[in-house]
Amino acid sequence: MTHPVRFTAAITREGQWYVARCLEVEVASQGESLDQALDNLREALELYFEDVDLTELPVTPILAPVTVELPQP
C-alpha cells in the first residue's frame, strides 16, 4: 500500500538541463524541461525510498531568503 508524501524540490537551469534537487534528502535528477526534471526526480525519490526505513520520514526544511554582500564583478 502506498500513500502520498510531499517533498520540496529546488530547480535550477544548468545549460540545456533543468536540475531538480530534493531538499529533504540528497536526491537529484535532471530533464530537458521543468516537467521532465520533476518527473525524473519523483521517480528517483520513489527508488530511493525503496531501500530506506520509513519509520521516520525526513523533516521539511524551513525555507528563508538570505541576502549577502558580494564584490562587484
Results as ranks from 00 to 15, higher is better:
V68L: 15
V59D: 00
A28N: 14
D35C: 05
L63I: 11
N40D: 12
L34W: 14
V68F: 05
V68A: 13
N40F: 07
A20M: 01
P65G: 11
A20F: 02
P65A: 14
I62Q: 10
Y48P: 02
R42P: 05
L57Q: 00
E69I: 13
V66H: 12
N40P: 11
E46P: 05
L41G: 05
S29E: 15
E32L: 07
L45F: 08
L38E: 12
E69T: 15
Q36K: 12
A37V: 07
A64Y: 08
L23M: 14
V68W: 07
L34Y: 14
E26F: 11
E43V: 12
E24Q: 10
E46D: 10
D53W: 03
L23I: 08
E46L: 14
E32Y: 03
E26H: 12
L38G: 09
E69M: 14
E56Y: 10
C22N: 01
Q30R: 11
A37N: 06
P58M: 02
E50N: 08
V52L: 02
L34P: 09
V25A: 04
E56S: 11
V68T: 10
D51E: 15
T60H: 14
A64V: 08
C22H: 03
E43S: 14
L23H: 07
D53E: 11
V19L: 09
R21L: 09
V68N: 10
L41R: 03
P61N: 01
V19R: 09
S29G: 11
P65I: 04
T60L: 09
V27K: 05
D51M: 15
V59Q: 05
A64H: 10
D51V: 15
E50V: 11
L63T: 00
A44Q: 11
V19I: 08
E32S: 04
L23S: 11
P58D: 02
L47H: 06
E50P: 03
E46S: 13
L41M: 03
Q30L: 04
V25S: 08
L54W: 00
L70P: 00
S29W: 01
